[in-house]
Simulated assay, not measured.
Amino acid sequence: MNQLTPKSIGCPYCGETIKVLLDASDVAEQYIEDCQVCCRPINFLVYETMDGELDVNVYSEDDVLIFTR
């Protein structure tokens, strides 16, 4: 069973800090979740740090993100 990792992020639109759950099966995947405060779509890119921890980069729709495997 995958363990979910709680993480606090800042919404790239409204700046509010929101809590999200990161899933290890989402590493190197890009997906969209709506902000819990302003409801705008946030692009998520989950990755694993050198220490083996899960982390995430978040982007607005206007930010350009190029991801290649």
Rank of each mutant, 00 (worst) to 15 (best):
M1S: 12
N2K: 11
L4M: 08
P6K: 06
I9G: 03
G10Q: 14
P12Q: 06
C14E: 11
G15N: 15
G15H: 12
G15D: 12
E16S: 15
T17F: 12
T17A: 11
K19P: 02
L22Y: 09
L22M: 07
L22K: 13
L22V: 07
D23E: 05
S25P: 02
S25K: 10
V27Q: 05
A28N: 15
A28T: 09
Y31H: 05
Y31L: 00
I32D: 01
I32V: 04
E33K: 12
D34G: 13
C35H: 08
C35R: 08
Q36Y: 09
Q36V: 12
V37L: 11
V37C: 13
N43S: 04
N43V: 09
F44L: 03
V46W: 00
V46G: 01
Y47P: 07
M50W: 08
D51N: 09
D51M: 14
G52Q: 07
E53S: 03
E53W: 02
D55R: 05
N57A: 13
V58Q: 03
V58C: 07
V58R: 04
V58S: 06
S60W: 02
L65E: 08
I66H: 11
I66T: 13
I66L: 14
F67W: 10
F67C: 08
F67R: 12
R69K: 13
